[in-house]
Amino acid sequence: MHTNRRNFLKLSATAAVATAFGGLGLGCTPKAEAVDRAAAMDPKWSKQTTSICCYCAVGCGLVVNTSLKTKRAVNVEGDPDHPINEGALCAKGASIWQLAENDRRPDSVLYRAPYANKFKKVSLAWALEKIAHNVKKARDENFTHLNSRGQAVNRCDTIASLGSAALDNEECWAYSTMLRSLGLVYVEHQARI
């Protein structure tokens, strides 16, 4: 389905109404025919992608518009085709655009040296190399091959990890297995608390 600008504006208006009343949890009603509007909307000035809200675990659908020129988000709203939220969002979900387009995001990796009173900007490569050395040192100098009963446990008791329910599944799995390969057992996150 090809959508001209006029139809696009009409559809946007529907979604905007849904967003406006989203906080009430009422939103718009499901359409009789299921059409993938997100895929159909293909205006010249932006691309549309679908996402899922990053806050609570209801899992509301989002439609994200990204400027083709700046590659930055121009709008985020509820996905009217998502069967759970049917276009509605709460105050937090409706503000996600401001989470991404936000001057309070730092512009660099930051490093605080021991006893320093401020952060300084460093490159990611520099930080990762230094972190890798720290991990290796903490692990190698204190690795527990055998526990007090003499049983092989092959673990690193001197590094802990906290996080994270904010990661994607693929990242959670990667992180979980990576930490175990390093021998970590103190692995915890939000689900515990």
């Binding site: 809200c53 990661l167 599944n169 175990r180 692995v187 915890e188 996150h189 939000q190």
Partner: peptide
């Protein structure tokens, strides 16, 4: 259980806790 974070279900499923693996 009304879980409170977008992927706290998945992060639990994938064992980011001391007592379970994925």
């Amino acid at each position: 259980a009304l879980r409170g974070e977008a992927n706290v279900q998945g992060s639990t499923d994938h064992g980011l806790l001391y007592h379970i693996l994925p």
